[in-house]
Each structure stands twice: as C-alpha cells, then as structure tokens.
Design a protein around this nucleic acid. Structure first.
Lengths: 220, 220
DNA sequence: AAATATTTTTAGACTTGTCTAAAAATAAAT
DNA sequence: ATTTATTTTTAGACAAGTCTAAAAATATTT
C-alpha cells in the first residue's frame, strides 16, 4: 500500500488532465500553471513523486505518469465524480456547487469506500457535468460528442456535457434551461462573431462562440 | 470566517472530550496523551489555538475552549457522527468500520454540506454507537443511561450506547447479538470478578466487568 | 555559431506540525 | 523549608510544501 498526501494527489491529477489534452511529457511550467504555483514548487513535487515511482521524470524534459501513477490519478477522478453524483443526486446540490466539496472528498482514504459509494449510487457512468466515471478497474466509457461550434445549421443534438465547470457558465446554462439531456437545434451561425442561434424547448436563444465552444452534444 | 487545519480541529475535539469527562482546565499532558503525541507538540499547538482565540490557555495552568472553540468542536462532533450514520445506514458499513472514514470526512469544509447531509439522513439524533448528534445550533440531546455494571440482578435494560468504539469490542458485541435497542437482563453478578450473567434474546451469556463497564443501557 | 530569450532547476528561507533533550515551573514529600 | 518528583515549556532539529531570487540548461533568433 502506498501513502500519498492530498498535495501529491492533486499534482497527479493535474498531470493526468494535461496529458489528456496534449500528448507527450507534461512540462514543469504547464504543471505549475495548472496548480497555480511556481515552477520551483512543481520541480520539488516532481522529485517527490518520482521517488515514489508515481511519475517518470527527466530533468528539463518533463514528466509522465507511471502505470501506478495513472492508476492513482484515475482512481481520484473516479472518487471525485462519484462524490459529485452523491452531492447532486442525494443531497440536492446544484451542478455548480459541488466541485469544491468533491475536491476534498476525493482524498478520503480507506478500503471499499469508493466501491460502496459506487454501488449505493447505482454505478453511475457519468457525473453531473456529463464527464465519464471510470469503473473500479479504471476503465472509461467515452461517448462520441461534439462541440456546438462544430454543428452546421439545421443539425440537432442532445446536451451531454460541458467543458467549463465554473459557476458563472453553469448558472447561465440554468437560466437558458440547458441541462444534460436537453435537445438543442442549431438554427444559424452569425458570420460576424460566430455566435449560435439555437432553439431550446421551442424558444430561440443566441449563444456566444465561447459558450457554444463549451457545450458538448450527441448528434441526433 | 475562520480557517482551521485538520490538526487544529483534532486538538479542539480532544480538548472538548477531555473536558466532558473531567471538569476544569485540560492539562497539557492529558491532551498530549489523548492525541498520541508529546507534551511539547501539544504546547506548540495550544499557542496556535490560543492565537486563533479558539482556546483560553494559561501557561502551566491548562486550557479551556472559548465559546468559538466550543462551537467548532461541537460542529466537528456533529459532522463526524452524521457521516457515521451515512456510512452505516446508506453505504452499509458495520459500526466498527466507520470511525476512520468519519475522522476524515468531518474535516470537509464548505457551506451547507453538514445541514444537507443532516436533512438527507432525516435528522438522526444518535449515531450508530448511540452517541447523541448535536443539532445545527449545537444543542445536545442527552438521554439517561447507565452502565451495565450499575444494574442490580433482576433489572432489565435496552442497549443505548457503548463507551468503547474499537473493533474488537464492537465485533464481540456483534457475536453476542448485542446491538443498539437490544434488551438485556442482568441475572447475576459474580462476586469474584464482577462479571455479569445476562440474558439476551432468551440465551444466557457472561460478560466481563470490562465489557459490562462499556455498555450503556436505558432502564426498562 | 553566437547572442538572446525562455524554461527549468537550485539555493535559501518560511510555515505547520512533529520530534528529542534540556531547562524551568509546579507539586509532592520528607 | 528544602529536597525530590512531576509537569510543562523552551530550544533546536526535521519533513512537507510553499515562496523568491539566482543559476543553469534548453530553445530561439539573428
């Protein structure tokens, strides 16, 4: 059994998430930026994680997760997302309120807690933001989804996720009646600023390019 | 709003619990013993807690909680016990498995989490070990209960709590069919070692003085 | 290829929380 | 009341995680 601190775990998650977006080793600066810390602190931490065999780290060349580090990061994301499901489905929080809680809850350690929670929640495969929840073996379900910005006028889709988890965006979606599972039809795209004219539940709205970029849809 | 670390919170809880048993200021050594640490470390922490106005600390004279420290300690106990109810009632853990989890969960910070959890659990007033759960205002429900060692032969009672939360004791009770709400009749007390002959669900058992001491009952 | 810019690492310091060993204060015993 | 024992505090050190500033390595530009 391996002992890890919350700080170490947060770095592992950050490395995982950066690796997801850009293949290849994660650079110190990118990691420091993601963690909101200095490059010096990131270097210190990389040495610690390397000592614990959780990352493969080469000076000046960046860092990648070892299989063990990958397993741990995946487990953290699993825990985070399961707790988010709990907070929304069971405790009745809104989808923009749960991130900070889950950020703490994901670090709770101990045998079986995650699997029992998973069982209790009925093995959810997606969290309240539509992100997939890895199963107990670390397997992911990735479903095909596209950004609203990639649709051509006339196409319809069902909202399956968001790429911005901040409260202002999520609350804005709430105001428009946009939630997971809601149908959206792209009516037109404004040439000038790439904003989207859409129909949601019979009503028409305009979404900025920024907002459109952050909405994931499954095509109908 | 006041920021506290888990370490500080654990000291506050320890001070609270020692104060419950023995009135008057808590001495440094007693606190160090309760925390499993050295008197020097306890002194260090008392200075920090004193700076934060959570305790009233006088060198060589011991420490007491300030109203704010008392409020915080009570809230921690509330959180701990609510999480224990969740772990047992919702996730299906046994009463001897939940302490370490709750010890971590009680430190999760954020608005409303505790009250929502309380609501979700239907405002339980006692935890899985029979300990009272303070309400949102920090009010306690204390119910009259006595130790099995104080009964006279022939008296009956209902199990309402335990004074030893360790797995060996709780699992021993499981084996005997002793759980909260179970009726116990004291048949006889052995003069030699003060052990208790009892009847539980029609069957007779012998409980050591130590075990009897750790069982709380409501008299019938 | 040399100069410049960027990135990364090292060095030294700070905080929290811990430790051991020694000093100081208090309490108990003669 | 003085010695002895106990309790508590101080002093100095350590680890984790952070910081800033400076040095070193790498990348880019000319």
């Amino acid at each position: 059994m391996l002992l890890t601190t919350s700080a170490e775990e947060n770095y592992l998650k950050a490395i995982f998430k950066i690796s997801e977006k850009e293949p290849g080793p994660v650079l110190t600066n990118a990691l420091a930026a993601a963690m909101g810390t200095s490059a010096a602190s990131a270097t210190d931490m990389l040495k610690r994680l390397s000592d614990k065999q959780l990352v493969a780290y080469e000076k000046y060349r960046g860092v990648t997760l070892t299989p063990e580090g990958d397993r741990l990061a995946t487990s953290l994301i699993r825990k985070h997302r399961l707790w988010e499901v709990f907070l929304v489905d069971k405790l009745g929080f809104a989808w923009d309120e749960v991130h900070d809680f889950a950020e703490q809850l994901e670090h709770v350690q101990g045998d079986n807690l995650t699997d029992r929670l998973d069982e209790y929640l009925n093995h959810p495969r997606f969290d309240p933001h539509g992100d997939p929840i890895p199963d107990a073996q670390g397997r992911w379900i990735r479903r095909p989804q596209v950004r609203l910005t990639t649709l051509t006028p006339g196409q319809k889709g069902i909202v399956t996720g968001v790429d911005d988890h901040t409260s202002p965006f999520l609350q804005y979606l709430d105001e428009l009646g946009i939630a997971l599972g809601v149908a959206i039809e792209l009516l037109d795209r404004t040439a000038y600023d790439q904003s989207s004219k859409v129909r949601i539940a019979g009503k028409e709205y305009t979404l900025s390019e920024k907002a459109s970029q952050n909405l994931f849809l499954r095509l109908e």
